[in-house]
Nucleic acid binder design. Structure first.
Lengths: 153, 153
DNA sequence: CAATTGTGGACATTAGATATCCACAATTGT
DNA sequence: ACAATTGTGGATATCTAATGTCCACAATTG
């Protein structure tokens, strides 16, 4: 029932990018350091996000990563599916392909209900909801951080 | 985000026991065969359920396992906690013990919401909900034994 | 006593997540 | 053109947790 670190890394990185001043890019090293994630591993995570269309990468000097969409338009469900593929709780979520016991499997209903719930939350939560500066509805924890927008330069 | 096979095995076994005529016990081998779960592994699962108080075990000839409560009084949450411990999605669910970044962790809210949702479903789903309702349609679990497969009715 | 059935824990295996490495391509300043 | 920088791609390694196996033993019953 655990979410993978990979997924967590991805979210944190996206949040990091979302905090940057408009149009600015952050390099791998900066993201990695800010979150104590191994650079070489984070590189892999970022590639996924690039391929997934959420992030743009710039090569060469002063290169780095930046968001490709507004934080409001990036949902956790998108991130999840890019990083982990389709959301599922058991192997045999939908079909009896791999399960000889599928016929009359009474658990299937529960798994589906679970997925609907989780998927719903993921779909309704956007990157914007994860930004600290918004004191509104979904971010109750008060943040005492200052100068979070200092990157690169 | 996957549920463990162990958890699934536990549920299936409990459902199997719930289908037995009142007061009857099923031995390890029977449960194992009915679900193609390795006996020696299932033994371990069953021990958890016994220690967890959901199941009684009887040693010696004609021994086996039987439910200790009514299916209506066994929730999936109980089963989950017995098998896997407290429900959590990330290491640092509640405290900053292991996380230097906890202060200002905006994801925590989402993880909590997730847990509430899943926990809710688990708490409201009982073993009884997993028993085949209509003897005519959804019953047939592929069990080779004689009269076991029929519940209630 | 002998047969059966579950218990307990040590151990082995496997699969997937996590991490590392290195050669290379793209970009930019000099 | 060249050197420095920055991300890319993929092969490989490591680590961990889940899953599975084994065996000696305790309890029960005929």
């Amino acid at each position: 029932m655990q979410l993978s670190k990979t997924f967590d890394y991805a979210i944190r990185s996206l949040v990091y990018l979302a905090k940057l001043p408009q149009g600015q890019a952050a390099e791998l090293r900066a993201i990695s350091l800010s979150q104590s994630v191994p650079m070489s591993y984070l590189a892999k995570v970022m590639r996924h996000l690039v391929r997934g269309g959420l992030v743009t990468s710039i090569l060469g000097r002063d290169g780095g990563y930046s968001l490709r969409k507004s934080p409001r338009d990036i949902t956790l469900l998108q991130v999840y599916e890019i990083m982990e593929g389709e959301l599922r709780f058991v192997e045999c979520m939908e079909s009896d392909r791999n399960c000889s016991l599928f016929n009359g499997c009474t658990q299937a209903t529960v798994w589906r209900r679970l997925r609907q719930a989780v998927e719903g939350i993921f779909r309704e939560t956007t990157l914007e909801d994860l930004l600290p500066k918004n004191p509104g509805e979904s971010v109750p924890t008060p943040i005492k951080e200052s100068g979070y927008a200092r990157a690169g330069a």
